[in-house]
Design a protein around this nucleic acid. Sequence first.
DNA 1: ACATCGTTGGTCGT
DNA 2: ACGACCAACGATGT
Length: 518
Amino acid sequence: MEPDPKAFSPGSTRAGINRIRFLLESLVDLDLSLKSLARDPYYQALDIKVKDYASSAGIEVFSPVSHTLFNPEDIIQKNGGKPPLSYQSFVKVAGQPSWASSPISTTISSLPCVGEIGSCEISKVPTVEELGYEDVEQYEWTPFRGGESEALKRLRESINNKEWVANFEKPKGDPSAIVKPATTVLSPYLKFGCLSSRYFYQCLQDVYKNVRKHTSPPVSLVGQLLWRDFFYTVAFGTPNFDQMRGNRICKQIPWNDDNELLAAWREARTGYPWIDAIMVQLRKWGWMHHLARHCVACFLTRGDLFVHWEKGRDVFERLLIDSDWAINNGNWLWLSCSSFFYQYNRIYSPLSFGKKYDPNGNYIRHFLPVLKDMPKEYIYEPWTAPLSVQTKAKCIIGRDYPKPDGAVKKRIEDVMPIATGHEREELEAELQGKDVLEINHPVGPFGTKEAPAVVKSYYDKRIVGCPGGEGEDEHDVVWFWLEKGKPHECPVCSQYFVLEVVGPGGPPDGHGDDEDHH
DNA sequence: ACATCGTTGGTCGT
DNA sequence: ACGACCAACGATGT
Ligand SMILES: Cc1cc2nc3c(=O)[nH]c(=O)nc-3n(C[C@H](O)[C@H](O)[C@H](O)COP(=O)(O)OP(=O)(O)OC[C@H]3O[C@@H](n4cnc5c(N)ncnc54)[C@H](O)[C@@H]3O)c2cc1C
Protein backbone atom coordinates (compact mmCIF):
# COMPACT_ATOMS: atom_id res chain seq x y z
CA MET A 1 0.00 0.00 0.00
CA GLU A 2 2.99 2.29 0.27
CA PRO A 3 3.08 4.95 -2.43
CA ASP A 4 5.38 4.18 -5.32
CA PRO A 5 6.39 7.39 -7.06
CA LYS A 6 7.86 5.42 -9.96
CA ALA A 7 4.56 3.75 -10.93
CA PHE A 8 2.72 5.02 -14.00
CA SER A 9 -0.36 6.09 -12.02
CA PRO A 10 -0.96 7.22 -8.43
CA GLY A 11 -0.80 4.23 -6.10
CA SER A 12 1.54 1.63 -4.76
CA THR A 13 3.81 -0.71 -6.68
CA ARG A 14 0.95 -3.14 -7.19
CA ALA A 15 -2.31 -1.26 -6.99
CA GLY A 16 -3.80 1.96 -8.27
CA ILE A 17 -5.24 4.33 -5.71
CA ASN A 18 -8.86 3.55 -6.58
CA ARG A 19 -8.43 -0.04 -5.50
CA ILE A 20 -6.43 0.88 -2.43
CA ARG A 21 -9.22 3.18 -1.31
CA PHE A 22 -11.82 0.53 -2.07
CA LEU A 23 -9.95 -1.96 0.09
CA LEU A 24 -9.58 0.48 2.98
CA GLU A 25 -13.28 1.26 2.84
CA SER A 26 -14.02 -2.44 2.87
CA LEU A 27 -11.80 -2.95 5.90
CA VAL A 28 -13.42 -0.11 7.79
CA ASP A 29 -16.82 -1.60 7.06
CA LEU A 30 -15.70 -5.07 8.14
CA ASP A 31 -14.20 -3.58 11.26
CA LEU A 32 -17.48 -1.89 12.10
CA SER A 33 -19.56 -5.01 11.64
CA LEU A 34 -17.17 -7.12 13.67
CA LYS A 35 -16.97 -4.48 16.39
CA SER A 36 -20.73 -4.67 16.67
CA LEU A 37 -20.13 -8.27 17.71
CA ALA A 38 -17.64 -7.10 20.30
CA ARG A 39 -14.73 -8.77 18.62
CA ASP A 40 -11.36 -7.40 17.69
CA PRO A 41 -10.10 -7.14 14.14
CA TYR A 42 -9.10 -10.26 12.39
CA TYR A 43 -5.98 -10.67 10.39
CA GLN A 44 -5.27 -13.18 7.75
CA ALA A 45 -1.63 -13.18 8.74
CA LEU A 46 -2.65 -14.31 12.18
CA ASP A 47 -4.62 -17.13 10.59
CA ILE A 48 -1.58 -18.26 8.69
CA LYS A 49 0.57 -18.17 11.83
CA VAL A 50 -1.98 -20.23 13.71
CA LYS A 51 -2.16 -22.66 10.84
CA ASP A 52 1.61 -23.07 10.57
CA TYR A 53 1.91 -23.52 14.32
CA ALA A 54 -0.86 -26.08 14.40
CA SER A 55 0.56 -28.01 11.46
CA SER A 56 4.01 -28.20 12.99
CA ALA A 57 2.43 -29.53 16.16
CA GLY A 58 0.83 -32.31 14.10
CA ILE A 59 -2.67 -30.87 14.30
CA GLU A 60 -4.80 -31.20 11.21
CA VAL A 61 -5.94 -27.84 9.85
CA PHE A 62 -9.19 -27.49 7.97
CA SER A 63 -9.40 -24.50 5.62
CA PRO A 64 -12.79 -24.36 3.99
CA VAL A 65 -13.02 -22.98 0.47
CA SER A 66 -15.76 -20.42 0.10
CA HIS A 67 -14.44 -17.71 -2.19
CA THR A 68 -15.71 -19.60 -5.24
CA LEU A 69 -18.87 -21.62 -5.84
CA PHE A 70 -16.89 -24.82 -6.21
CA ASN A 71 -13.52 -25.96 -4.97
CA PRO A 72 -11.25 -25.86 -8.04
CA GLU A 73 -9.36 -28.87 -6.72
CA ASP A 74 -12.53 -30.98 -6.60
CA ILE A 75 -13.49 -30.06 -10.14
CA ILE A 76 -10.05 -30.93 -11.44
CA GLN A 77 -10.14 -34.24 -9.65
CA LYS A 78 -13.62 -35.02 -10.99
CA ASN A 79 -12.37 -34.23 -14.48
CA GLY A 80 -9.57 -36.77 -14.28
CA GLY A 81 -6.78 -34.56 -13.01
CA LYS A 82 -7.00 -31.80 -15.63
CA PRO A 83 -9.10 -28.67 -15.51
CA PRO A 84 -11.98 -28.62 -17.99
CA LEU A 85 -10.96 -26.25 -20.78
CA SER A 86 -14.36 -25.31 -22.11
CA TYR A 87 -17.20 -23.64 -20.28
CA GLN A 88 -19.62 -26.37 -21.20
CA SER A 89 -17.45 -29.17 -19.93
CA PHE A 90 -16.84 -27.15 -16.79
CA VAL A 91 -20.55 -26.73 -16.16
CA LYS A 92 -21.13 -30.43 -16.78
CA VAL A 93 -18.41 -31.55 -14.40
CA ALA A 94 -19.34 -29.00 -11.75
CA GLY A 95 -23.02 -29.92 -11.51
CA GLN A 96 -24.98 -28.47 -8.60
CA PRO A 97 -23.03 -27.03 -5.68
CA SER A 98 -23.29 -29.21 -2.58
CA TRP A 99 -24.40 -26.29 -0.43
CA ALA A 100 -27.17 -25.27 -2.85
CA SER A 101 -30.02 -25.94 -0.44
CA SER A 102 -28.44 -25.03 2.88
CA PRO A 103 -29.12 -21.35 3.45
CA ILE A 104 -26.13 -19.05 3.72
CA SER A 105 -26.37 -16.14 6.10
CA THR A 106 -24.60 -12.81 5.82
CA THR A 107 -24.85 -12.18 9.53
CA ILE A 108 -23.28 -13.93 12.45
CA SER A 109 -24.37 -13.68 16.04
CA SER A 110 -21.14 -14.53 17.77
CA LEU A 111 -17.50 -15.21 17.17
CA PRO A 112 -14.94 -17.11 19.16
CA CYS A 113 -12.55 -15.15 21.31
CA VAL A 114 -9.31 -14.02 19.69
CA GLY A 115 -7.24 -14.85 22.76
CA GLU A 116 -3.58 -14.03 23.13
CA ILE A 117 -2.33 -12.01 20.16
CA GLY A 118 1.32 -11.94 21.19
CA SER A 119 3.29 -9.10 19.73
CA CYS A 120 0.66 -8.25 17.10
CA GLU A 121 -0.48 -4.70 17.33
CA ILE A 122 -4.07 -3.72 16.83
CA SER A 123 -4.45 -0.50 14.98
CA LYS A 124 -7.27 1.13 13.13
CA VAL A 125 -7.57 0.99 9.36
CA PRO A 126 -5.59 3.90 7.91
CA THR A 127 -7.03 6.37 5.45
CA VAL A 128 -5.52 6.83 2.00
CA GLU A 129 -4.16 10.18 3.16
CA GLU A 130 -2.44 8.55 6.15
CA LEU A 131 -0.83 6.11 3.76
CA GLY A 132 0.86 9.04 2.06
CA TYR A 133 -1.51 9.83 -0.78
CA GLU A 134 -2.58 13.25 0.44
CA ASP A 135 -1.76 15.22 -2.67
CA VAL A 136 -2.83 12.99 -5.49
CA GLU A 137 -4.66 14.98 -8.11
CA GLN A 138 -7.42 13.51 -10.19
CA TYR A 139 -10.70 15.21 -10.72
CA GLU A 140 -12.92 12.17 -10.99
CA TRP A 141 -12.64 9.11 -8.76
CA THR A 142 -14.33 5.76 -8.74
CA PRO A 143 -17.99 6.18 -7.86
CA PHE A 144 -18.05 2.76 -6.15
CA ARG A 145 -17.61 2.59 -2.39
CA GLY A 146 -16.03 -0.40 -0.71
CA GLY A 147 -17.45 -2.63 1.98
CA GLU A 148 -19.91 -5.40 2.70
CA SER A 149 -22.76 -3.01 3.55
CA GLU A 150 -22.43 -1.37 0.16
CA ALA A 151 -22.16 -4.79 -1.51
CA LEU A 152 -25.37 -6.03 0.07
CA LYS A 153 -27.13 -2.80 -0.85
CA ARG A 154 -26.06 -3.19 -4.47
CA LEU A 155 -27.02 -6.85 -4.47
CA ARG A 156 -30.50 -6.02 -3.13
CA GLU A 157 -30.97 -3.34 -5.76
CA SER A 158 -30.18 -5.83 -8.50
CA ILE A 159 -32.21 -8.78 -7.26
CA ASN A 160 -35.23 -6.71 -6.26
CA ASN A 161 -35.82 -6.30 -9.95
CA LYS A 162 -36.83 -9.89 -10.61
CA GLU A 163 -37.69 -9.21 -14.21
CA TRP A 164 -34.21 -7.82 -14.85
CA VAL A 165 -32.49 -10.77 -13.20
CA ALA A 166 -34.68 -13.29 -15.05
CA ASN A 167 -34.04 -11.69 -18.44
CA PHE A 168 -30.34 -10.91 -17.95
CA GLU A 169 -28.45 -11.77 -21.11
CA LYS A 170 -24.81 -10.77 -20.93
CA PRO A 171 -23.96 -9.96 -24.53
CA LYS A 172 -27.00 -7.70 -24.84
CA GLY A 173 -25.99 -4.97 -22.40
CA ASP A 174 -24.92 -1.45 -23.32
CA PRO A 175 -21.22 -0.90 -22.57
CA SER A 176 -21.61 2.87 -22.79
CA ALA A 177 -24.22 3.09 -20.01
CA ILE A 178 -22.66 4.98 -17.10
CA VAL A 179 -25.57 6.52 -15.21
CA LYS A 180 -26.89 3.05 -14.62
CA PRO A 181 -24.37 0.39 -15.70
CA ALA A 182 -25.84 -2.52 -17.66
CA THR A 183 -24.45 -5.14 -15.26
CA THR A 184 -24.42 -5.49 -11.46
CA VAL A 185 -20.98 -3.97 -10.68
CA LEU A 186 -20.57 -6.54 -7.95
CA SER A 187 -17.15 -7.59 -9.25
CA PRO A 188 -15.02 -5.49 -6.84
CA TYR A 189 -17.08 -6.80 -3.93
CA LEU A 190 -16.63 -10.39 -5.04
CA LYS A 191 -12.94 -9.74 -5.55
CA PHE A 192 -12.35 -8.49 -2.02
CA GLY A 193 -14.72 -10.93 -0.37
CA CYS A 194 -17.18 -8.20 0.62
CA LEU A 195 -19.82 -10.34 -1.04
CA SER A 196 -19.92 -14.12 -1.04
CA SER A 197 -20.33 -15.58 -4.51
CA ARG A 198 -22.31 -18.39 -2.89
CA TYR A 199 -24.74 -16.02 -1.25
CA PHE A 200 -25.11 -14.16 -4.56
CA TYR A 201 -25.79 -17.50 -6.26
CA GLN A 202 -28.50 -18.43 -3.74
CA CYS A 203 -30.19 -15.05 -4.08
CA LEU A 204 -30.31 -15.57 -7.85
CA GLN A 205 -31.73 -19.08 -7.45
CA ASP A 206 -34.45 -17.63 -5.20
CA VAL A 207 -35.38 -15.16 -7.90
CA TYR A 208 -35.45 -17.91 -10.54
CA LYS A 209 -37.79 -19.98 -8.37
CA ASN A 210 -40.31 -17.17 -8.38
CA VAL A 211 -40.47 -16.37 -12.07
CA ARG A 212 -42.01 -18.23 -14.98
CA LYS A 213 -38.93 -18.36 -17.13
CA HIS A 214 -35.37 -17.13 -16.92
CA THR A 215 -32.19 -17.08 -18.99
CA SER A 216 -29.55 -19.79 -18.58
CA PRO A 217 -25.77 -20.10 -18.55
CA PRO A 218 -23.59 -18.92 -20.15
CA VAL A 219 -25.54 -15.67 -20.61
CA SER A 220 -27.56 -15.54 -17.38
CA LEU A 221 -26.35 -13.95 -14.15
CA VAL A 222 -25.71 -17.35 -12.62
CA GLY A 223 -23.84 -18.04 -15.83
CA GLN A 224 -21.54 -15.08 -15.01
CA LEU A 225 -20.68 -16.56 -11.65
CA LEU A 226 -19.91 -19.82 -13.38
CA TRP A 227 -17.49 -17.98 -15.70
CA ARG A 228 -15.74 -16.75 -12.61
CA ASP A 229 -15.43 -20.28 -11.27
CA PHE A 230 -14.39 -21.57 -14.66
CA PHE A 231 -11.42 -19.21 -14.81
CA TYR A 232 -10.48 -19.91 -11.19
CA THR A 233 -10.42 -23.63 -11.94
CA VAL A 234 -8.38 -23.41 -15.13
CA ALA A 235 -6.01 -20.89 -13.56
CA PHE A 236 -5.51 -23.11 -10.52
CA GLY A 237 -4.76 -26.16 -12.66
CA THR A 238 -2.54 -24.55 -15.30
CA PRO A 239 1.16 -23.90 -14.64
CA ASN A 240 2.28 -20.49 -15.91
CA PHE A 241 -1.32 -19.47 -16.50
CA ASP A 242 -0.34 -15.80 -16.35
CA GLN A 243 2.25 -15.89 -19.11
CA MET A 244 2.65 -17.10 -22.68
CA ARG A 245 5.94 -18.96 -22.27
CA GLY A 246 5.58 -22.36 -20.73
CA ASN A 247 1.80 -22.12 -20.68
CA ARG A 248 0.38 -25.33 -22.07
CA ILE A 249 -2.96 -23.78 -23.07
CA CYS A 250 -1.57 -20.58 -24.58
CA LYS A 251 -0.87 -20.08 -28.29
CA GLN A 252 2.72 -19.00 -28.91
CA ILE A 253 2.54 -15.76 -30.84
CA PRO A 254 5.31 -13.26 -31.69
CA TRP A 255 3.66 -10.24 -30.08
CA ASN A 256 5.63 -7.03 -30.28
CA ASP A 257 7.28 -5.24 -27.44
CA ASP A 258 6.61 -1.66 -28.50
CA ASN A 259 6.51 0.57 -25.45
CA GLU A 260 5.35 3.57 -27.48
CA LEU A 261 2.22 1.74 -28.55
CA LEU A 262 1.64 0.42 -25.08
CA ALA A 263 1.99 3.92 -23.63
CA ALA A 264 -0.42 5.40 -26.19
CA TRP A 265 -3.00 2.81 -25.22
CA ARG A 266 -2.39 3.02 -21.49
CA GLU A 267 -2.50 6.80 -21.48
CA ALA A 268 -5.65 7.03 -23.57
CA ARG A 269 -4.01 8.73 -26.55
CA THR A 270 -4.45 6.28 -29.40
CA GLY A 271 -6.51 8.88 -31.24
CA TYR A 272 -9.55 6.60 -31.37
CA PRO A 273 -12.04 8.28 -29.01
CA TRP A 274 -14.02 5.13 -28.23
CA ILE A 275 -10.82 3.33 -27.19
CA ASP A 276 -9.40 6.30 -25.32
CA ALA A 277 -12.65 6.99 -23.45
CA ILE A 278 -12.69 3.41 -22.18
CA MET A 279 -9.08 3.75 -21.03
CA VAL A 280 -10.03 6.94 -19.17
CA GLN A 281 -12.91 5.13 -17.49
CA LEU A 282 -10.43 2.47 -16.43
CA ARG A 283 -8.20 5.08 -14.83
CA LYS A 284 -10.95 7.14 -13.21
CA TRP A 285 -13.45 4.48 -12.21
CA GLY A 286 -11.40 1.29 -12.15
CA TRP A 287 -14.39 -0.44 -13.67
CA MET A 288 -15.70 -0.76 -17.21
CA HIS A 289 -18.45 -2.83 -18.77
CA HIS A 290 -17.36 -6.22 -19.97
CA LEU A 291 -17.75 -5.33 -23.67
CA ALA A 292 -15.76 -2.14 -23.19
CA ARG A 293 -12.95 -4.31 -21.79
CA HIS A 294 -13.27 -6.44 -24.91
CA CYS A 295 -12.86 -3.44 -27.19
CA VAL A 296 -9.65 -2.16 -25.62
CA ALA A 297 -8.15 -5.61 -25.10
CA CYS A 298 -8.82 -6.55 -28.71
CA PHE A 299 -7.42 -3.24 -29.95
CA LEU A 300 -4.18 -3.60 -27.97
CA THR A 301 -3.56 -7.18 -29.03
CA ARG A 302 -4.86 -9.04 -32.09
CA GLY A 303 -7.08 -6.24 -33.35
CA ASP A 304 -4.65 -3.44 -34.07
CA LEU A 305 -1.51 -2.81 -32.06
CA PHE A 306 -0.33 -6.39 -31.65
CA VAL A 307 1.18 -5.64 -28.26
CA HIS A 308 1.64 -8.60 -25.93
CA TRP A 309 -1.47 -9.41 -23.87
CA GLU A 310 0.70 -9.68 -20.77
CA LYS A 311 1.36 -5.93 -21.03
CA GLY A 312 -2.33 -5.11 -21.21
CA ARG A 313 -3.01 -7.53 -18.39
CA ASP A 314 -0.54 -5.64 -16.19
CA VAL A 315 -2.26 -2.32 -16.83
CA PHE A 316 -5.68 -3.80 -16.01
CA GLU A 317 -4.27 -5.54 -12.96
CA ARG A 318 -3.10 -2.25 -11.54
CA LEU A 319 -6.01 0.01 -12.42
CA LEU A 320 -9.12 -2.16 -12.04
CA ILE A 321 -10.80 -2.08 -8.67
CA ASP A 322 -11.99 -5.63 -9.35
CA SER A 323 -8.68 -6.96 -10.67
CA ASP A 324 -8.55 -10.65 -10.01
CA TRP A 325 -5.60 -12.80 -11.02
CA ALA A 326 -7.54 -15.73 -12.46
CA ILE A 327 -10.30 -13.74 -14.16
CA ASN A 328 -8.08 -11.04 -15.56
CA ASN A 329 -5.54 -13.43 -17.06
CA GLY A 330 -8.27 -15.75 -18.32
CA ASN A 331 -10.01 -12.95 -20.15
CA TRP A 332 -6.77 -11.61 -21.66
CA LEU A 333 -6.01 -15.08 -22.96
CA TRP A 334 -9.50 -15.12 -24.40
CA LEU A 335 -9.45 -11.70 -26.03
CA SER A 336 -6.01 -12.13 -27.57
CA CYS A 337 -7.13 -15.47 -29.05
CA SER A 338 -4.35 -17.18 -27.14
CA SER A 339 -6.68 -19.67 -25.51
CA PHE A 340 -10.37 -20.57 -25.09
CA PHE A 341 -11.44 -18.47 -28.08
CA TYR A 342 -9.81 -18.41 -31.50
CA GLN A 343 -12.00 -16.61 -34.01
CA TYR A 344 -9.54 -13.84 -34.55
CA ASN A 345 -11.34 -12.51 -37.61
CA ARG A 346 -14.04 -11.26 -35.26
CA ILE A 347 -12.62 -7.90 -34.45
CA TYR A 348 -14.27 -5.08 -32.55
CA SER A 349 -14.33 -1.96 -34.65
CA PRO A 350 -13.11 1.05 -32.67
CA LEU A 351 -15.57 3.12 -34.72
CA SER A 352 -18.77 1.19 -35.27
CA PHE A 353 -18.94 -0.91 -32.11
CA GLY A 354 -19.41 2.10 -29.84
CA LYS A 355 -21.62 3.92 -32.36
CA LYS A 356 -24.07 1.04 -32.31
CA TYR A 357 -24.87 1.70 -28.64
CA ASP A 358 -24.17 5.41 -28.34
CA PRO A 359 -24.62 7.18 -31.69
CA ASN A 360 -24.47 10.56 -30.02
CA GLY A 361 -21.13 9.83 -28.34
CA ASN A 362 -22.23 10.77 -24.81
CA TYR A 363 -19.87 8.25 -23.27
CA ILE A 364 -16.94 9.78 -25.14
CA ARG A 365 -18.05 13.29 -24.18
CA HIS A 366 -18.10 12.30 -20.52
CA PHE A 367 -14.67 10.68 -20.33
CA LEU A 368 -12.95 12.83 -22.96
CA PRO A 369 -14.37 16.31 -22.24
CA VAL A 370 -11.98 17.75 -24.83
CA LEU A 371 -14.32 16.28 -27.45
CA LYS A 372 -17.56 17.34 -25.79
CA ASP A 373 -18.48 19.83 -28.50
CA MET A 374 -17.49 17.68 -31.44
CA PRO A 375 -20.56 17.02 -33.62
CA LYS A 376 -21.78 13.46 -33.44
CA GLU A 377 -20.98 12.89 -37.13
CA TYR A 378 -17.28 13.11 -36.30
CA ILE A 379 -16.96 12.15 -32.67
CA TYR A 380 -15.88 8.57 -33.35
CA GLU A 381 -13.32 9.66 -35.96
CA PRO A 382 -12.56 13.30 -35.24
CA TRP A 383 -9.58 13.43 -37.62
CA THR A 384 -12.11 13.43 -40.47
CA ALA A 385 -13.78 16.62 -39.22
CA PRO A 386 -13.12 19.69 -41.39
CA LEU A 387 -10.88 22.23 -39.69
CA SER A 388 -13.79 24.67 -39.40
CA VAL A 389 -15.73 22.10 -37.41
CA GLN A 390 -12.71 21.37 -35.21
CA THR A 391 -12.26 25.07 -34.56
CA LYS A 392 -15.88 25.52 -33.62
CA ALA A 393 -15.69 22.52 -31.31
CA LYS A 394 -12.56 24.04 -29.73
CA CYS A 395 -10.68 20.85 -30.37
CA ILE A 396 -7.97 20.78 -33.02
CA ILE A 397 -7.01 17.23 -33.82
CA GLY A 398 -3.27 16.84 -33.46
CA ARG A 399 -3.11 19.60 -30.87
CA ASP A 400 -5.92 19.18 -28.36
CA TYR A 401 -6.62 15.53 -29.03
CA PRO A 402 -4.23 13.14 -30.77
CA LYS A 403 -4.53 12.23 -34.39
CA PRO A 404 -3.91 8.54 -34.85
CA ASP A 405 -0.80 9.37 -36.84
CA GLY A 406 1.83 8.89 -34.19
CA ALA A 407 2.93 5.56 -32.86
CA VAL A 408 -0.42 3.95 -33.53
CA LYS A 409 -0.55 4.80 -37.22
CA LYS A 410 3.09 3.86 -37.67
CA ARG A 411 2.41 0.47 -36.19
CA ILE A 412 -0.44 -0.06 -38.56
CA GLU A 413 1.79 0.69 -41.53
CA ASP A 414 4.49 -1.61 -40.18
CA VAL A 415 2.21 -4.57 -40.05
CA MET A 416 0.73 -3.93 -43.45
CA PRO A 417 3.37 -4.57 -46.05
CA ILE A 418 0.92 -3.26 -48.55
CA ALA A 419 1.32 -4.52 -52.04
CA THR A 420 -0.61 -2.42 -54.51
CA GLY A 421 -0.33 -1.43 -58.11
CA HIS A 422 2.91 -2.35 -59.84
CA GLU A 423 4.42 -4.02 -56.80
CA ARG A 424 1.40 -6.23 -56.51
CA GLU A 425 1.49 -7.19 -60.17
CA GLU A 426 5.13 -8.18 -59.77
CA LEU A 427 4.32 -10.32 -56.79
CA GLU A 428 1.50 -11.96 -58.64
CA ALA A 429 3.71 -12.66 -61.64
CA GLU A 430 6.27 -14.21 -59.38
CA LEU A 431 3.66 -16.48 -57.94
CA GLN A 432 2.21 -17.59 -61.29
CA GLY A 433 1.77 -21.31 -61.45
CA LYS A 434 3.15 -21.81 -58.00
CA ASP A 435 1.17 -23.60 -55.40
CA VAL A 436 1.22 -20.75 -53.01
CA LEU A 437 -1.66 -19.75 -50.87
CA GLU A 438 -2.29 -16.05 -50.73
CA ILE A 439 -3.85 -14.70 -47.61
CA ASN A 440 -5.42 -11.30 -47.45
CA HIS A 441 -5.35 -10.08 -43.90
CA PRO A 442 -7.48 -7.14 -43.00
CA VAL A 443 -5.11 -6.40 -40.13
CA GLY A 444 -5.27 -2.65 -40.10
CA PRO A 445 -7.66 -0.58 -38.08
CA PHE A 446 -11.16 -0.02 -39.28
CA GLY A 447 -11.51 3.23 -41.05
CA THR A 448 -8.35 3.01 -43.08
CA LYS A 449 -8.97 2.63 -46.77
CA GLU A 450 -5.73 0.90 -47.70
CA ALA A 451 -5.58 -2.46 -49.39
CA PRO A 452 -5.07 -5.44 -47.14
CA ALA A 453 -1.66 -6.93 -46.62
CA VAL A 454 -0.66 -9.64 -48.98
CA VAL A 455 1.13 -12.44 -47.26
CA LYS A 456 2.24 -15.63 -48.84
CA SER A 457 2.48 -18.82 -46.94
CA TYR A 458 2.23 -22.50 -47.57
CA TYR A 459 0.56 -22.80 -44.25
CA ASP A 460 -3.07 -21.97 -44.52
CA LYS A 461 -3.33 -21.67 -40.77
CA ARG A 462 -0.09 -19.76 -40.44
CA ILE A 463 1.16 -22.20 -37.89
CA VAL A 464 4.84 -22.81 -38.24
CA GLY A 465 6.33 -25.89 -36.70
CA CYS A 466 9.60 -24.77 -35.16
CA PRO A 467 12.13 -27.58 -34.85
CA GLY A 468 13.34 -26.29 -31.50
CA GLY A 469 16.80 -27.30 -30.32
CA GLU A 470 19.02 -26.21 -27.44
CA GLY A 471 16.79 -27.62 -24.75
CA GLU A 472 13.61 -26.62 -26.48
CA ASP A 473 11.34 -29.31 -27.95
CA GLU A 474 9.51 -28.97 -31.24
CA HIS A 475 6.72 -26.46 -30.93
CA ASP A 476 4.13 -24.58 -32.93
CA VAL A 477 4.11 -20.85 -33.40
CA VAL A 478 1.23 -18.81 -34.78
CA TRP A 479 2.22 -16.04 -37.16
CA PHE A 480 -0.44 -13.54 -37.99
CA TRP A 481 1.56 -12.41 -40.96
CA LEU A 482 4.75 -13.39 -42.68
CA GLU A 483 6.90 -11.30 -44.90
CA LYS A 484 9.08 -12.76 -47.57
CA GLY A 485 12.80 -12.39 -46.95
CA LYS A 486 12.39 -10.76 -43.56
CA PRO A 487 13.71 -12.54 -40.49
CA HIS A 488 11.01 -13.65 -38.08
CA GLU A 489 11.99 -14.39 -34.51
CA CYS A 490 10.45 -17.41 -32.87
CA PRO A 491 8.77 -16.24 -29.66
CA VAL A 492 9.55 -19.51 -27.91
CA CYS A 493 13.19 -20.28 -28.71
CA SER A 494 14.36 -17.03 -30.37
CA GLN A 495 15.59 -18.73 -33.53
CA TYR A 496 15.14 -16.73 -36.69
CA PHE A 497 13.14 -17.85 -39.68
CA VAL A 498 13.14 -16.44 -43.13
CA LEU A 499 10.15 -17.22 -45.28
CA GLU A 500 11.07 -18.11 -48.81
CA VAL A 501 8.76 -18.66 -51.70
CA VAL A 502 9.75 -22.05 -53.05
CA GLY A 503 8.44 -24.36 -55.71
CA PRO A 504 5.45 -26.64 -55.63
CA GLY A 505 4.99 -28.75 -52.58
CA GLY A 506 2.83 -28.87 -49.58
CA PRO A 507 3.20 -28.29 -45.92
CA PRO A 508 5.73 -30.65 -44.36
CA ASP A 509 3.14 -32.56 -42.40
CA GLY A 510 2.79 -35.64 -44.57
CA HIS A 511 -0.12 -34.35 -46.64
CA GLY A 512 0.95 -33.69 -50.16
CA ASP A 513 4.33 -33.45 -51.75
CA ASP A 514 6.89 -31.64 -49.66
CA GLU A 515 10.07 -32.51 -51.54
CA ASP A 516 10.95 -29.01 -52.56
CA HIS A 517 9.66 -27.45 -49.49
CA HIS A 518 11.73 -25.39 -47.11
C1' DA B 1 -12.73 -36.76 -43.22
C1' DC B 2 -16.39 -34.08 -41.94
C1' DA B 3 -20.03 -31.78 -39.16
C1' DT B 4 -21.01 -29.09 -35.28
C1' DC B 5 -20.72 -25.48 -32.29
C1' DG B 6 -18.65 -21.90 -29.32
C1' DT B 7 -21.46 -16.01 -23.95
C1' DT B 8 -20.80 -11.00 -26.74
C1' DG B 9 -18.00 -9.13 -35.19
C1' DG B 10 -18.91 -6.35 -39.41
C1' DT B 11 -21.67 -5.13 -43.13
C1' DC B 12 -25.59 -4.81 -45.81
C1' DG B 13 -30.22 -5.67 -46.71
C1' DT B 14 -35.10 -5.63 -45.12
C1' DA C 1 -34.13 -5.07 -34.71
C1' DC C 2 -33.14 -9.00 -37.22
C1' DG C 3 -31.36 -12.13 -40.70
C1' DA C 4 -28.13 -13.35 -44.42
C1' DC C 5 -23.70 -13.51 -45.67
C1' DC C 6 -18.70 -13.35 -44.89
C1' DA C 7 -15.36 -16.68 -43.25
C1' DA C 8 -8.46 -16.62 -41.68
C1' DC C 9 -10.41 -21.03 -35.89
C1' DG C 10 -10.15 -25.35 -33.05
C1' DA C 11 -11.93 -28.92 -29.83
C1' DT C 12 -14.85 -32.58 -30.04
C1' DG C 13 -17.60 -36.20 -31.65
C1' DT C 14 -18.99 -39.33 -35.29
C1 LIG D 1 -9.66 -8.18 -20.71
C2 LIG D 1 -10.62 -8.44 -19.57
C3 LIG D 1 -10.15 -8.39 -18.26
C4 LIG D 1 -11.02 -8.65 -17.20
N1 LIG D 1 -10.52 -8.58 -15.91
C5 LIG D 1 -11.35 -8.84 -14.88
C6 LIG D 1 -10.87 -8.78 -13.53
O1 LIG D 1 -9.69 -8.50 -13.28
N2 LIG D 1 -11.74 -9.05 -12.52
C7 LIG D 1 -13.03 -9.36 -12.76
O2 LIG D 1 -13.79 -9.57 -11.81
N3 LIG D 1 -13.51 -9.45 -14.02
C8 LIG D 1 -12.71 -9.19 -15.08
N4 LIG D 1 -13.22 -9.29 -16.37
C9 LIG D 1 -14.53 -9.91 -16.58
C10 LIG D 1 -15.73 -8.99 -16.64
O3 LIG D 1 -15.50 -7.96 -17.56
C11 LIG D 1 -16.08 -8.41 -15.27
O4 LIG D 1 -16.17 -9.43 -14.31
C12 LIG D 1 -17.41 -7.69 -15.31
O5 LIG D 1 -17.43 -6.69 -16.28
C13 LIG D 1 -17.68 -7.09 -13.93
O6 LIG D 1 -18.86 -6.35 -13.91
P1 LIG D 1 -20.16 -6.86 -13.17
O7 LIG D 1 -19.83 -7.25 -11.77
O8 LIG D 1 -21.19 -5.83 -13.35
O9 LIG D 1 -20.52 -8.17 -14.00
P2 LIG D 1 -21.88 -9.00 -14.08
O10 LIG D 1 -22.21 -9.17 -15.50
O11 LIG D 1 -22.92 -8.40 -13.20
O12 LIG D 1 -21.46 -10.45 -13.55
C14 LIG D 1 -21.53 -10.84 -12.18
C15 LIG D 1 -20.21 -11.43 -11.76
O13 LIG D 1 -19.84 -12.53 -12.57
C16 LIG D 1 -18.44 -12.55 -12.75
N5 LIG D 1 -18.10 -12.40 -14.18
C17 LIG D 1 -18.75 -11.69 -15.11
N6 LIG D 1 -18.15 -11.78 -16.30
C18 LIG D 1 -17.10 -12.58 -16.13
C19 LIG D 1 -16.10 -13.06 -16.99
N7 LIG D 1 -16.06 -12.76 -18.29
N8 LIG D 1 -15.15 -13.84 -16.47
C20 LIG D 1 -15.17 -14.18 -15.16
N9 LIG D 1 -16.08 -13.75 -14.30
C21 LIG D 1 -17.03 -12.96 -14.78
C22 LIG D 1 -17.88 -11.38 -11.99
O14 LIG D 1 -17.45 -11.81 -10.73
C23 LIG D 1 -19.06 -10.46 -11.90
O15 LIG D 1 -18.99 -9.59 -10.80
C24 LIG D 1 -12.37 -8.99 -17.45
C25 LIG D 1 -12.81 -9.02 -18.76
C26 LIG D 1 -11.97 -8.74 -19.82
C27 LIG D 1 -12.49 -8.80 -21.22
